[in-house]
Amino acid sequence: GKELVLALYDYQEKSPREVTMKKGDILTLLNSTNKDWWKVEVKATANDKTYERQGFVPAAYVKKL
Rank of each mutant, 00 (worst) to 15 (best):
W37E: 03
K14E: 07
W37V: 03
E13T: 07
E13Y: 04
T33W: 09
L4P: 04
K23P: 03
M21V: 09
K43R: 14
W38M: 01
S32M: 08
V42A: 13
K43T: 14
E52Y: 15
Y9T: 07
K35C: 10
V19P: 00
K35I: 10
K2G: 11
K22T: 08
T20K: 03
L4V: 07
E18L: 05
W37L: 02
M21N: 00
G55V: 04
P16C: 10
A44L: 15
K23C: 07
L4Q: 10
E52W: 15
K14I: 07
T28N: 07
Y9E: 08
K14M: 11
E13Q: 13
L30W: 04
L6C: 10
E13I: 05
I26L: 08
L27A: 07
V19W: 04
T45L: 12
N47A: 11
K2C: 14
A46Y: 14
A44K: 12
E41A: 14
N47Q: 10
N47T: 08
R53P: 01
D36A: 11
V57Y: 00
W37Y: 06
T28G: 07
D10M: 03
T45Q: 12
T45F: 14
E13R: 13
Y11K: 01
K2A: 11
D25R: 02
W38G: 00
T20L: 01
A60I: 09
V57F: 00
T20D: 03
A59S: 12
A44S: 12
V42P: 06
D48E: 11
G1R: 13
S15W: 05
K14S: 09
L27P: 01
L6R: 08
E18D: 04
K64C: 09
N34V: 05
V42S: 12
A59D: 02
E41I: 13
A7N: 02
K63C: 15
Y9R: 15
V42K: 15
V62C: 15
N47L: 12
V62M: 06
V19D: 01
T45I: 13
F56T: 03
G55W: 04
N31Q: 09
R17H: 12
D36T: 14
K49I: 14
V57D: 02
T50G: 10
Y51K: 09
K14N: 09
S15D: 10
T33F: 09
D25H: 05
G1K: 13
S32K: 07
Y11E: 03
D10V: 03
K22H: 08
S15P: 03
V5H: 03
N34D: 14
L4F: 15
R17I: 11
D10K: 03
T45C: 14
T33P: 04
T45P: 08
D48V: 06
L4C: 13
K43G: 09
G24C: 10
Y61I: 06
L65Y: 08
K43M: 14
A46C: 15
V40T: 00
E41W: 07
N47C: 13
L8Y: 03
W38K: 01
E18I: 03
V62G: 01
R17D: 10
T50N: 11
S15A: 08
Q54S: 11
V19F: 08
L65A: 04
E52F: 15
L8A: 03
Y9I: 08
R53H: 06
A60K: 15
V57K: 00
K35W: 06
A7E: 00
V5M: 04
V57T: 02
E18H: 06
S32C: 14
S32Y: 07
L4H: 08
F56S: 02
I26C: 06
G24V: 01
A60V: 08
R17A: 11
K35D: 10
G24E: 02
I26Q: 04
M21F: 10
Y61G: 05
G24N: 05
E13S: 15
A44W: 15
Y9H: 10
L6W: 07
E13L: 06
Y9G: 04
L29D: 01
K49G: 13
Y9C: 15
W38A: 03
V19M: 07
L29G: 00
L8E: 03
I26P: 03
L6Q: 09
V42R: 12
Q12R: 11
W37A: 02
L27Y: 08
P16V: 09
R53I: 08
T45R: 11
Y51F: 12
L8V: 06
K39F: 15
K63V: 15
D25V: 04
K23E: 06
K64F: 09
N47F: 12
Y11P: 01
L6I: 15
E3T: 14
Q12T: 14
V42L: 11
A59W: 02
K14F: 05
K64V: 11
L27D: 00
R53F: 05
Y11L: 01
T33G: 08
E3F: 13
Y61E: 01
G55L: 05
T50S: 10
K39C: 15
N34L: 08
L65G: 02
E52T: 15
D25E: 10
P58T: 01
T33D: 15
R17M: 12
G1P: 11
L6A: 05
Y11G: 01
A46S: 12
K2T: 11
K2V: 12
K23I: 05
A7P: 00
S15R: 09
E18G: 09
A46K: 13
L27R: 00
K39N: 06
L30P: 00
V19C: 07
L29W: 01
A44P: 07
A59P: 04
N34G: 09
G24S: 02
L65E: 03
K43I: 15
Q12F: 15
Y11R: 02
W37S: 01
L65W: 07
R53Y: 06
